[in-house]
């Protein structure tokens, strides 16, 4: 049933696209015919740019996770620190941090580091905020029950805090990963000489509509693959930690 819905959406999109180009309603420069995009897709070598972009996003995401989850756990558990830092976290998260990109590019260069840091910066806030909220919502009676059975700090974190908060943390991670990927692509688009974002910029600035659309299709495919892999990893993680 779900496959049918997907199929129907894809078919409708392609049919509309085909109709718009074949009737000449939209100029080929703005929307190239499907067959040209397919030819352009064949001419690209997508593996290297996609691998570069994925690796950058993954590094940024990993860095953000390593920092944001412990910070979120502490802010969720400690009321005083929470009152001091949660508003700050929420405020900074609302700033369009991409304004820092020129600074990052100037200090870290136009290569991988500035993209990783930008991606990590964007991934950090949703993960930290989601972790804080998830940890705050832990059933206090579970913690009391564990204390009555003799659990202390590390036992509590391992047996109550992390398993209870995990679903909330995972949804923060999902948002963070998406943002890391988007901002890495955007960083590559703005300045750089490799990666999916660069390919989009290069074909767009060269008025190569077919190639541009080919890269759009590839970027969408990449997002789908990254999300599928993430879901599989998250499921394994929940199975391991919530037993």
């Amino acid at each position: 049933m779900r496959a049918l819905v997907y199929l129907a959406v894809a078919a409708t999109t392609l049919l509309t696209w085909w109709l718009l180009t074949v009737t000449g309603t939209v100029a080929p420069l703005i929307l190239p015919p499907i067959n040209e995009v397919v030819t352009a897709l064949r001419q690209q070598d997508p593996v290297v740019p996609m691998a570069i972009t994925t690796a950058r996003a993954a590094y940024g995401f990993a860095l953000a996770t390593l920092l944001a989850v412990p910070i979120g756990v502490v802010l969720g558990r400690d009321q005083l620190l929470n009152r001091a830092y949660e508003p700050l976290l929420a405020t900074v998260a609302a700033v369009p941090l991409v304004v820092l990109y020129p600074v990052l590019a100037a200090t870290l260069g136009l290569g991988t580091s500035s993209k990783v840091v930008l991606g990590g910066l964007y991934a950090f806030f949703p993960i930290a905020i989601a972790t804080t909220r998830a940890v705050q919502q832990i059933d206090p009676e579970l913690v009391t029950a564990m204390r009555s059975m003799g659990a202390r700090g590390a036992d509590l974190t391992r047996t109550v805090v992390i398993p209870s908060a995990l679903p909330g943390i995972v949804s923060g991670l999902r948002v963070g990963l998406g943002l890391a990927l988007v901002t890495v692509v955007a960083g590559e688009f703005i300045a750089g000489d490799e990666g999916v974002g660069y390919q989009l910029a290069a074909s767009s600035q060269g008025y190569q509509s077919a190639a541009l659309f080919a890269w759009v299709v590839l970027a969408i495919a990449l997002t789908i693959v990254v999300n599928t892999v993430f879901t599989a990893m998250a499921t394994t993680l929940e199975r391991t930690l919530r037993r």
Binding site: E141, T144, A145, M149, V160, P163
Partner: peptide, 9 residues
């Protein structure tokens, strides 16, 4: 202890 809301995991 047995808690009022049981506190089962």
């Amino acid at each position: 202890y047995v808690f009022q809301d049981l506190a089962l995991f």
